[in-house]
Design a protein around this nucleic acid. Structure first.
Length: 205
DNA sequence: CGACCGATCGTCT
DNA sequence: GACGATCGGTCGA
């Protein structure tokens, strides 16, 4: 089934279609290795944010601030920002430098280091909420805004392919979560989830 | 099970 | 000074 781990190289992220990258990240493995502690999970939910033309993006209309600066980085750059004053949301940058496309990782199926995830989150047992939702998974893997500006080819954080593939009919496409304020862009089909996976966040399409 | 609400604070206007 | 790319608890049916 699963072959050797192969770290995705920059060409994977350096593509024009951020929506396609979001789709292709399903099934890949996000790994952190922080202070010698390894944790990982398979990506089962993503969302694409399509830069200056996307009202849901922090870069809509070309907005470029200290917070969103890393959105404009090289493909494979990490953009983490704090939401609601407490949640750190993890994105990977796609397309070439200065084009602020990114993919938000919204849910993982835990693989390695579940004990460490429990330590980080303070949860007593490994239930489905451990890595369900962007705030939860970042906390579980120990990713914070201090990792923003790094990249996913580093020793500390990387994304790998173990050869596993979801079939076309196992992937569901919906609109994005929590972007009602994005007006006509709120309904864009930019969210990808694995059909029936219990770690996928939210409910409806 | 769905709807609602409070927590909590950095960022932007 | 207002507002989140969220979460988890509570309340009512």
């Amino acid at each position: 089934m699963s072959g050797n781990l192969k770290i995705l190289d920059q060409s994977f992220y350096n593509r024009k279609n951020v929506v396609q990258v979001a789709r292709d990240l399903l099934g890949k493995i996000l790994i952190t290795q922080l202070d010698g502690v390894r944790s990982s999970g398979r990506i089962v939910e993503t969302e694409a944010y399509a830069g200056v033309e996307d009202r849901a993006s922090h870069a809509f209309g070309g907005r470029r601030t200290a917070r969103s600066e890393h959105l404009y980085g090289d493909p494979g750059m990490i953009y983490v920002y704090i939401c609601y004053g407490m949640h750190h949301l993890f994105n990977v940058i796609t397309n070439k430098k200065d084009i602020p496309h990114g993919v938000l990782i919204r849910a993982l199926e835990p693989m390695e280091g579940i004990e460490h995830m429990l330590n980080r989150t303070g949860k007593p047992v490994a239930d489905l909420t451990l890595t369900k939702g962007p705030g939860n998974l970042s906390c579980a893997l120990g990713m914070t805004k201090f990792h923003s500006g790094g990249n996913v080819f580093s020793e500390e954080i990387f994304i790998a392919d173990d050869g596993m593939r979801y079939k076309k009919n196992e992937i569901v496409i919906t609109k994005r979560i929590g972007v009602e304020g994005a007006r006509e862009d709120a309904d864009l089909p930019y969210r990808f989830i694995v059909r029936g996976n219990p770690y996928v966040s939210a409910k409806k399409s």
